[in-house]
Design a protein around this nucleic acid. Structure first.
Lengths: 336, 336
DNA sequence: CAGGTGGATTTGAACGTTAAAACGGGTGGC
DNA sequence: GCCACCCGTTTTAACGTTCAAATCCACCTG
């Protein structure tokens, strides 16, 4: 494996000149640059990342904790997110390093260790929980990070974040349902302890109020876990309490799938009798029948912003970005 | 951030002694070891991985190419796999580095580059395709790797691999269905070009033959893609051709989900009228209703073997391991 | 007591790179 | 003709670690 020294010998220049050819080519005279470049190609030279990192003390690696899920829960868009994150990182010459850690503050020693041993420059957090303790901890330790998702604290959130406007997304869904003739729209949510869920619910409620549609408490059912069964159960509860419901906005694709199942069980046609929308536009949304209308999070954009913020030389620009999701309309809300 | 030198000064020993305290503690006199250890803890010293890697030329990082999926297809167990892989890697002091690359031989320069720049020691391949060209290429370049999944070539497979006995798994499913009274078992497969699919199908066929059950061509339907819709369509085809079918072995959970849907549409009760089994025991399997009997791949074991083989000092042990999957019986094949 | 033995520790060098300073030759100003 | 300056290049010195060889020292042996 060729080293700088060998390239330098071959091109008959000093080692530093070869280094400059790669890192600051404008400093070389054009003919020297060309000679060095030729030698580099001839010897198939690749800079040794470890040596470089040792010298510059920057590893160009970003840590990401691979989430472990409670039994029975799926993260249907994790592969999309990871792919987008990788791609973004690569476009700035960086890579993603995976690791596992206990959830919450228990896992922080792992983060600290990875940073202290210089395995990573910083972290991308996701699966941000309400009152997630990681953010404050990392900020305290001055370890660079950026979060996908807000902490939902009353006070200011520690550290930079990127998030999707869940409230706006749900409002858009309500608007779409209204425009296609729906007038009694239920909402399938998660427990009240989830800031994410409360935010999305608030979007549903606000738009219902704006449009003069009912949005009382009985129209919003909370599911204990994010499973198809719970979605079906909650849908049953919703329909039992109010048979006039003609649309359901679900906070996740999984719950929406449960809604579809329950509708089918009752002999109701999804998209005709009752419209249904999900959230995340997971791959499943487009392969069930009727295909599921869903709110798509712009993964590429999210990943791009995350990497941008994390790798910005100094946090001069805005470090809080709220992105707009996109409603993908399919058969479950617009038959024909 | 403390360095070896600072610890050495604090403990009043040489730098090398501190290094030995960490890498070869048996070489130190107990009292010295204790003194050094105390200093290490006091200064909260963590070895700099880059310096270590530079010296030893081993980065303890394993590359994994994050797969990008054709539209509409999900990898429901990817997060399980990644989590298991991370955990295994970590238990040997290593980590997983993610990257993206074009599929097939087009992506090989990316692999080579990562290795040449010493970002990774080697690779774990997955999503192995029939006649996957990556294996031979990496072997040729003498880049360490191990594959999850076989290449399904006629000749010997280049390089070490770990795989799950899909044929055995399907045979077990057939056996289970037979023992619960089923006598006419269909099979939902993928295109004939998939070695993986042919292998699983062969297991179904072989066991059917052994048990004296029918296994003619009409009982095995090939789906073009791995979607719920295709699974439903194929199930319809199966039932139309042979209404006496009382069980369906599907090559994936997604296809099995399609089968469940089609059965429901026809007013048949899954698990009673027709038993259904899937493959992968994805999180969805346990949250649909009836819950899906499925063939579970032992992810932790797979990941363990992969890392074992890849990090073995020299390939003296066996480098081809076929693991047995486990049938997880649920309501879709055993009501009550 | 000289000479050997072996365990514990130190010394010196190297891994491959880059930052910073030094160098040398030309240019232009005064 | 002297100095200041700039440009392209080289020299020097690190970054933090580990390997290999050297040294030290206490103990044993004949």
């Amino acid at each position: 494996m060729a080293t700088l020294k060998q390239v330098a010998a071959h091109a008959e220049v000093s080692v530093q000149t070869v280094s400059n050819a790669l890192n600051a080519p404008h400093r070389l005279r054009p003919d020297t640059l060309q000679r060095v470049t030729r030698s580099i190609e001839l010897l198939n030279y690749r800079p040794n990342r470890n040596a470089r990192s040792l010298r510059t003390s920057a590893v160009e690696l970003i840590g990401y904790c691979v989430p472990s899920w409670p039994h029975g829960q799926v993260h249907l868009v994790m592969d999309q997110f990871l792919h987008a994150l990788c791609t973004s990182a690569e476009s700035s010459g960086r890579h993603i390093l995976l690791f596992t850690a206990p959830v919450g503050v228990e896992g922080m020693p792992v983060y600290e260790d990875l940073h202290a041993r210089r395995l990573v420059d910083g972290f991308v957090l996701s699966q941000t929980e309400t009152h997630d303790p990681r953010h404050a901890w990392l900020k305290e330790q001055q370890i660079p990070f950026v979060s996908f998702g807000r902490v939902w604290e009353e006070s200011t959130q520690p550290g930079p974040w990127v998030d999707v406007d869940g409230a706006g997304g749900c409002a858009t869904a309500v608007q779409h349902l209204y425009e296609t003739g729906r007038r009694r729209i239920g909402f399938l949510s998660w427990p009240r302890t989830s800031g994410l869920a409360e935010n999305r619910l608030s979007g549903w409620q606000a738009r219902c109020v704006e449009l003069g549609l009912p949005s009382h408490d009985e129209l919003a059912v909370r599911c204990r876990v994010d499973t198809i069964d719970e979605g079906a159960r909650a849908t049953a509860e919703l329909l039992d309490a109010d048979p006039a419901i003609d649309a359901i906005v679900a906070i996740s694709d999984i719950l929406a799938l449960g809604a579809l199942r329950e509708l089918g069980r009752r002999g109701l046609v999804a998209g005709v009798d009752v419209a249904v929308t999900g959230f995340d536009d997971s791959p499943l949304a487009s392969v069930v029948s009727p295909a599921l209308t869903s709110i798509r999070q712009p993964m590429d954009e999210i990943a791009g912003e995350l990497i941008d913020i994390l790798t910005a030389p100094d946090p001069k620009g805005p470090t809080e970005r709220l992105l707009q999701p996109e409603l993908v309309v399919r058969g479950s809300s617009a038959p024909g």
